[in-house]
């Protein structure tokens, strides 16, 4: 399948190779996230995946999202995760109790989904190319979009964040 993915043609060899390397890192990292016996290792693998995603965004010309990804995900969310891990489990070493007894159930389901998705995508997009001169999206464009047509979802998001802050405090408060 990697032959299909990397059906690199004459142009943009560098990007394709870059994509391949990052993608490989991401997939391996993701597999580590879901299989690792060590919670901290899993969290660090997740960092790898998220950083890889940021790199892919840059490849796709979405620098602003990439920077947000690094700031929010790798910076903030991961710290939250590590805190969560440490506050709930003092143990940093291996644990045997991370998986369900019926973990194997996930394999057929995931493979089935992957099969369907891969089929649909390969069938649907064939070898459609991204525009070669994909210019990066300026932050000003995004801000115009966020504060223009997408203003209502944006406001909704702000409400969600406020609710999350309040909810987090209420839930985690000791009394």
């Amino acid at each position: 399948m990697s032959a299909v993915i990397l059906a690199a043609d004459d142009i943009q060899v560098a990007q394709n190779i870059g994509f391949g390397i990052i993608a490989a890192i991401m997939v391996i990292g993701a597999l580590k996230v879901v299989t690792s016996k060590n919670v901290v290792h899993a969290a660090l693998s997740l960092v790898l995946v998220l950083s890889g995603a940021a790199a892919q965004y840059i490849l796709l010309g979405a620098e602003f999202v990439a920077v947000s990804q690094i700031l929010v995900y790798v910076g903030a969310v991961m710290v939250l995760f590590l805190f969560g891990v440490m506050l709930t489990r003092a143990k940093l070493g291996k644990e045997t109790d991370l998986d369900q007894p019926k973990a194997w159930l996930g394999v057929p389901v995931a493979l089935l989904m992957l099969g369907v998705l891969a089929w649909v995508l390969i069938d649907g997009f064939q070898d459609e190319r991204l525009p070669a001169d994909a210019t990066s999206k300026a932050a000003v464009e995004i801000s115009d979009s966020v504060l223009g047509p997408a203003l209502v979802p944006f406001l909704a998001l702000t409400f969600v964040l406020v609710a999350a802050v309040i909810g987090g405090i209420v839930l985690a408060r000791k009394d």
Partner: peptide, 9 residues
């Protein structure tokens, strides 16, 4: 680059 690269990833 093929768009499928990213989608399959």
């Amino acid at each position: 680059m093929l768009v499928n690269n990213f989608l399959l990833l």
